[in-house]
Design a protein around this nucleic acid. Structure first.
Lengths: 179, 179
DNA sequence: ACCTGAACACCGTTCAAGT
DNA sequence: ACCTGAACACCGTTCAAGT
């Protein structure tokens, strides 16, 4: 049984971390996060033994949303939507996420691999639904797999590139998979 | 006229930084680099006002080699080599560089954009030679430009991905440009 | 002009004391 | 059990003194 104030503190810390990391990226200090959350640093460290752990927890929310979006896209495909258009939409989402999430993503640079693994294990099945549907309609090159899409997603550029370059990247990426 | 010892110090610092960054990445402290170079920290800061500047200087060497490699590939194309094979070779080089260089590359994470710009301004012309030759032989899709290759190079994954994934990435990347 | 290295500032992390 | 916040450790950077 967790104490009510402990649970509340944990949530306050996550909220504060999410907000501050989003606006200032990696640069926020643990002291500042603790102050914003209304707790002492020691309390912060009781919940998250290291700054990396805290960032990982804050990024987890991002992953949730990604998985939810992939599922929504898969649902639309089941309802007759164009699989390739949905894949394009997902890539656009991945690249164009609001600046707030970008900052978190940047802050989590070192965690990219972990996050991808997390996404794979939980969102892979959803992505696979789209791949299967697309193949059933003969829209993809025969050898393209769901893993290929994960690979493409993993190498997606961030918004440090100019808009035109990002659009072009999506075109080239889709070109490598469509029939 | 620079004092001989000053020039010597600068070189010692660059050598030490190159070695230490290569073996330990970003983790090396300025004190350690200074000690290895046989100078005081203050001297290090006289030559490179910030750690970022020092890393940038160390990375410059990498860029030189990249440009040289692109030029060599372009020369081989002029001598009749297959342009697509040369492009594949360049991508492989980019992904598979020795671990030592990778560490420097990782240490220079924040400088990626600058390095790319540097490469573009100096290596773009070399890369363009390959693109032109490839188009002349009808090997590329008509709309593919040299900028597309730079874009692909910029999004190349590093060796955090398993070998098979890196090979597959190269396949997909080439697929998006070949006719 | 350039070099030295002690000192400063900042920030992630710990821990003895409190409730 | 959990919270507090002063203290520690580490590292990038500065600067007064030396040559």
């Amino acid at each position: 049984m967790v104490r009510a104030d402990s649970a509340r503190n944990r949530q306050s810390i996550l909220d504060a971390a999410g907000t501050l990391l989003a606006s200032h990226g990696d640069a926020v200090g643990m002291d500042e996060i603790a102050a914003t959350a209304g707790v002492a640093v020691g309390t912060l460290y009781r919940h998250f033994p290291t700054k990396t752990d805290l960032i990982a927890a804050a990024v987890a929310g991002l992953t949730e949303r990604l998985v939810a979006d992939v599922r929504a896209a898969a649902d639309r495909v089941d309802s007759g939507a164009d699989p390739v258009a949905e894949l394009r939409g997902l890539l656009e989402w991945l690249i164009r996420k609001p600046a707030a999430d970008k900052a978190i993503k940047a802050a989590a640079a070192g965690l990219a691999a972990d996050a991808l693994q997390e996404m794979e294990s939980r969102g892979f099945a959803e992505l696979d639904r789209i791949t299967v549907a697309a193949h059933a309609r003969g829209l993809l090159r025969p050898d393209i797999t769901t893993t290929d899409f994960a690979l493409i997603a993993a190498t997606a550029p961030d918004d440090s590139l100019p808009e035109a370059a990002r659009d072009r990247w999506i075109e080239l990426a889709l070109r490598s998979v469509v029939a």
